[in-house]
Lab assay of single mutants.
Amino acid sequence: TYYTVKSGDTANKIAAQYGVSVANLRSWNGISGDLIFVGQKLIVKKG
């Protein structure tokens, strides 16, 4: 599943929404920190 980042989103918020850990969200998308951008497409695997 892909999720498009919206204004006000955070890695924590997206992870919680899908029931996954922030560490997994980072791993699936090659993100090292919490910096995400509006319009960015993230791979999300439901927990």
Rank of each mutant, 00 (worst) to 15 (best):
N12S: 15
R26C: 15
Q40M: 11
V5W: 05
S32E: 15
I36L: 14
V44D: 01
G39I: 03
V5E: 02
Y2I: 11
Y3S: 01
S7M: 14
V20M: 09
A15H: 02
T10R: 03
Y18H: 13
T1P: 10
Y3K: 00
G33S: 09
W28S: 03
A23N: 09
V22R: 03
I43A: 06
A16W: 09
A23K: 09
I31H: 04
N12E: 15
Y18Q: 07
S32W: 10
F37P: 08
G39C: 04
A15R: 02
K6A: 09
K6M: 11
G47T: 12
T1R: 11
L35F: 13
A23M: 08
N12C: 15
S21Y: 03
I14S: 00
R26T: 10
G33R: 06
Q17S: 10
Y2S: 07
V44N: 01
T4Q: 08
T10Q: 04
V20L: 09
V38T: 08
K6D: 05
L25Y: 00
G19F: 07
W28E: 03
Q17L: 14
K6E: 09
Y18K: 04
I31V: 07
T4W: 11
K13T: 14
Q40N: 05
T1V: 14
Y18R: 03
V20C: 09
V38R: 05
T4L: 08
G33W: 06
T1G: 10
Y2W: 14
T10L: 04
N29P: 01
D34H: 08
A23W: 06
G19E: 08
D34S: 08
S27Y: 11
I14W: 01
D9Y: 00
N12P: 11
N24H: 10
L42S: 01
D34K: 07
A11D: 06
N24F: 07
Q17R: 12
K45P: 07
G19Q: 09
N24T: 12
Y18L: 12
T10A: 04
I43C: 09
I43D: 03
Y18P: 01
K41C: 13
K46I: 15
K45L: 12
V44E: 01
S21M: 06
D9L: 00
G30F: 09
Q17A: 13
S21P: 08
K41L: 13
A23V: 10
W28T: 03
G47V: 13
G8L: 04
K13H: 09
A11K: 03
K45W: 12
Y18N: 08
V5C: 06
S21N: 07
N29H: 01
S7Q: 14
Y18G: 02
N12F: 13
T4K: 07
T10P: 01
T4C: 11
T4I: 15
S7H: 13
I31E: 05
L42E: 01
Y2H: 09
G8R: 03
D34R: 06
V38N: 05
L25C: 03
F37S: 09
G8D: 06
Y3F: 03
L25W: 00
V44K: 00
G8N: 06
L25V: 05
G19M: 07
G30Q: 11
I31P: 04
S32K: 13
S7Y: 14
S27W: 10
L35Q: 14
A11I: 15
D34G: 08
L42N: 00
D9M: 01
F37Q: 09
A16R: 11
G33E: 10
Q40K: 05
S7G: 09
G39K: 03
Y18V: 08
G19D: 09
K13A: 12
L25D: 01
Q17G: 06
G8F: 05
K41T: 12
A15V: 02
Y2E: 08
V22N: 04
D34Q: 08
L42Q: 01
S7A: 15
I36C: 04
G39E: 03
K6W: 03
V38K: 06
Y3T: 04
A23L: 07
Q17M: 15
G39P: 00
A11C: 14
V22Y: 03
N29Y: 02
S32G: 09
A11W: 15
V20N: 01
N29R: 00
W28Y: 04
L42I: 09
Q40F: 04
S27A: 14
G47K: 10
G30R: 08
I14G: 00
S27P: 00
Q17P: 00
Y3E: 02
V20I: 15
W28I: 05
T1W: 14
A16V: 10
K13G: 14
V20A: 04
V38I: 11
N29A: 02
W28G: 02
K46W: 15
I31K: 04
K13Q: 11
V20Y: 02
S27V: 11
I14T: 00
S7L: 14
V38A: 09
S27R: 12
G47F: 11
V44M: 05
Y3V: 08
Y2D: 06
Y3W: 03
K6F: 04
Y2G: 04
V20K: 00
G33V: 09
A11L: 15
L42V: 06
Q17K: 13
V38C: 07
G39H: 04
